[in-house]
């Protein structure tokens, strides 16, 4: 399964990579903001996107709105510090499939990925 990691923090991307590698996913691509992700997503054609909210150049919410105009099916998990209910609802309305609030543990991240992929496959 191909997974794209979109986060401006390299440390956070490394953490996500570590969890995904342990889960057996090795086809990974990285983007440092929404704009970078949009430029790479067509070529990489991910099966799942892990998306941060607050990023320079283009934030996660703008990315998902733009991305969903062309792709309605690829699952996207928002991984963010934005934990207010209204923000979560806003993201889900924009097209996010699942939500992980920082701080999170490796177990929570892997659980959300499994849930999301199971739902997408159903």
């Amino acid at each position: 399964m191909k997974i794209m990691l979109v986060d401006d923090s390299k440390t956070m991307r490394n953490i996500q990579k570590s969890v995904l590698t342990q889960l057996g996913h090795t086809e990974l691509a990285e983007a440092c903001d929404g704009q970078d992700a949009l430029s790479k997503v067509a070529a990489f054609a991910p099966d799942l996107i892990l998306l941060d909210w607050n990023m320079p150049n283009m934030d996660g919410l703008t990315f998902i709105k733009t991305f969903r105009q062309a792709d309605k099916s690829t699952p996207v998990i928002m991984v963010t510090t934005e934990s207010e209910r209204a923000r979560v609802v806003e993201a889900i309305k924009a097209g996010v499939n699942n939500y992980v609030v920082k701080p999170f543990t490796p177990d929570i991240l892997s659980q959300r990925i499994t849930e999301t992929m199971d739902k997408a496959a159903a």
């Binding site: 440390t11 956070m12 570590s18 607050n54 510090t81 920082k102 701080p103 999170f104 490796p106």
Partner: peptide, 26 residues
Amino acid sequence: EMKESVNSLTPAQAERMTELEFTLAT
């Protein structure tokens, strides 16, 4: 220390706490 105030973390602290969580596990 961060865990004690987990509900009032700034976004930067939340990211740091995630980082610490993974570092400790590693």
